[in-house]
Simulated assay, not measured.
Amino acid sequence: MLQAKAVDGAALKTAIEGRDGKMLASFYTDDAVVRVIDRNNPPSKPREIHGRQAIATFWDDICSRAMTHKVDAAIAEGDRLAFTQACAYPDGTRVFCAAILDLSDGRIARQTVVQAWDE
């Protein structure tokens, strides 16, 4: 079982840029939901990942890819944290992501991710 940890902008940046899927998964509540909106998952039918274990699998997949991640900005206010992220694959493909997180006792309860890929 993953040990839950509180999240802040600095910890999130360290985990994302370090491609540390275990650390990322530790930031979520057991019943967290991640909603992904992109070209293949439009707002009317977003991809939803339910529960910390499923979210851990999601992050393990992303962190195992040969790509770089850079958190450009992170802003916290109350029980919300937002950040932007730029990613690049070795072939030059770029991805931009904006996310907003709803926190519960310092952990992520709900996350909405909007991402755009080079096409």
Rank of each mutant, 00 (worst) to 15 (best):
S26Q: 08
E77C: 11
T68Y: 11
A25W: 10
A54F: 06
D72R: 10
D38T: 00
D60Q: 14
T14V: 12
Y28C: 03
R52K: 15
V33C: 09
T68F: 10
G21A: 10
A32K: 00
K70P: 05
A66K: 14
A56P: 08
A25N: 11
S64A: 13
M67D: 08
A82M: 12
A15H: 03
V34G: 03
G78E: 13
R65L: 07
D38A: 03
D38N: 13
W59E: 02
D60R: 07
H69R: 14
P43T: 03
V36P: 00
Q85V: 01
A25Q: 13
T29A: 07
F83T: 02
I16K: 05
T29S: 13
A74Y: 05
I49P: 04
M67E: 14
I75E: 14
R65E: 10
V71I: 07
S64R: 08
V34W: 06
D20L: 06
D38E: 08
D79L: 10
S26I: 02
V71C: 08
I75L: 15
T29P: 05
A15E: 06
N41C: 01
D72C: 06
D31S: 11
I75F: 15
M23N: 12
Y28K: 00
V34S: 04
A56Y: 13
A74G: 09
V71S: 06
R65T: 00
M67T: 05
A73P: 08
A32Y: 06
S26R: 05
E17S: 05
S64H: 08
D72T: 04
F27D: 01
K70W: 08
N41G: 02
I37H: 03
N40K: 13
M67P: 04
K13C: 01
V33T: 10
G18C: 09
A56I: 06
A73D: 15
P46N: 07
R19I: 01
D60K: 07
A25T: 05
T68C: 06
E48W: 10
D72I: 04
T14Q: 14
I49L: 03
S26V: 03
T68L: 07
V71Y: 09
F58C: 04
T14F: 10
T14N: 12
V71D: 09
D20H: 11
K45S: 15
G18Y: 09
L12R: 02
L81A: 00
L12S: 00
D30N: 14
L12F: 03
Q85W: 00
T57A: 14
R35I: 04
G18L: 09
S64Q: 09
I55R: 01
L12M: 12
D20T: 02
A82K: 08
W59I: 00
S26W: 06
D31C: 04
H69N: 15
G78D: 13
L24C: 05
A74H: 09
W59R: 04
I75K: 13
I75W: 14
A15K: 02
I37N: 02
R52L: 09
P43D: 12
D72A: 05
T68N: 12
D79F: 12
I16W: 10
P46V: 02
L81S: 01
D60L: 09
K13Q: 13
A32E: 11
P46F: 00
T29H: 12
L81C: 04
A76N: 11
Q53E: 15
I62F: 13
D30M: 08
N40S: 13
N40A: 12
Q85C: 00
V71A: 07
I55E: 01
H50G: 05
G18P: 09
H69W: 15
S44C: 10
A74D: 11
A25P: 09
